[in-house]
């Protein structure tokens, strides 16, 4: 029998997933000057929808997780060389003052012309993937491969401690770069909502009609999503990503996931912190394993001698 056992129910996974969705926000912006051109971006996204499912074959499935863009601005600027006219003076005899022409310059700014279209309303992605849970041991004393392919992909810097690391190893993936059902559904819903709001300023009649419109938009989304659902179902059955994009996506995610564990446990693991000059008390962790079925995820480990 294992010395230590920790189990997390599927219901807790689902609640934690919802918590993650509600609180996860990614935003970033950058602007770089490349001489004549200025290029930049200003993006903010959050997660919506999607389900998580623990499955009997030691896999975790996340289905139809929507990436919603609150801001997806691409900034393109052009720095046109400055052109100036005028500015010279005509010397006049005394007492007539000199006549100076005004100097007028155009394209003095940097950039002179800038556009920043926001594609947030027109772009939405949907991701589904299945990954198997795997526990691996990271021995910090072993040399890393040279060159290390994980260098640009690590979210958390490489540790100097030995660690047990739990990975979610992707098996299949389905990416809809342009989630047309949602884009079309959103556009229809927004257009009809605006029209109804203009016609009926308020009251329960308007609320009722808006609710019906929301239902119709959801139906349109569901109908348009049927081909993608079939694609995801086939991927799940054959355990292979269909479509070139999905296949490439699986490879990329596989590579990314193999560099980024979802959970880390230091070995030895600190149970009493250093205090008043005393060294911390650490225990060696051995035989860590992780296993999921359709009810729970179980992590087991032994305490080393």
């Amino acid at each position: 029998m294992a010395h230590l056992t920790v189990a997390v129910s599927e219901a807790t996974f689902i609640r934690s997933f919802d918590l993650l969705k509600r609180n996860f926000v990614f935003q970033d912006s950058d602007l770089q000057d490349h001489g004549v051109f200025t290029l930049g971006y200003d993006v903010k996204m959050h997660l919506e929808g999607g389900t998580v499912d623990l499955r009997a074959d030691n896999t975790v499935q996340i289905k139809e997780l929507d990436i919603r863009w609150d801001r997806l601005k691409v900034i393109i600027g052009l720095d046109i060389p400055e052109i100036c006219v005028g500015g010279g003076c005509i010397n006049m005899p005394w007492p007539i003052p000199d006549i100076c022409l005004p100097r007028i310059c155009i394209f003095s700014g940097d950039p002179d012309v800038s556009i920043s279209p926001d594609f947030a309303s027109f772009v939405a992605q949907e991701i589904s993937f299945t990954g198997s849970l795997d526990a691996r041991y990271f021995d910090a004393s072993l040399p890393l491969p040279s060159p290390d392919p994980c260098v640009p992909l690590r979210v958390v810097p490489l540790t100097t401690n030995n660690q047990w690391q739990i990975f979610l190893d992707p098996q299949t993936m389905d990416i809809d770069l342009f989630d047309f059902p949602d884009i079309v559904g959103n556009l229809i819903e927004n257009a009809l909502t605006s029209a109804i709001t203009a016609l009926i300023p308020g009251g329960w009649v308007r609320d009722l009609i808006l609710a019906i419109i929301g239902g119709i938009a959801d139906l349109i989304r569901a109908i348009l999503d049927i081909p993608d659902d079939i694609d995801e179902w086939l991927s799940d059955v054959f355990n292979v990503s269909f479509g070139l994009l999905d296949f490439i996506g699986t490879l990329v995610l596989d590579f990314f996931a193999s560099c980024n564990p979802i959970y880390r446990i230091d070995d030895p693991f600190e149970i009493l912190p250093a205090a008043s000059g005393l060294i911390p008390v650490r225990i060696p962790i051995r035989n860590l394993s992780v296993r999921a079925d359709d009810l729970e995820m179980v992590v087991r480990a032994d305490v080393g001698a």
Partner: peptide, 10 residues
Amino acid sequence: FTDRSDLYAA
């Protein structure tokens, strides 16, 4: 292990 609680540890 978790039929009676969200989390279990032993």
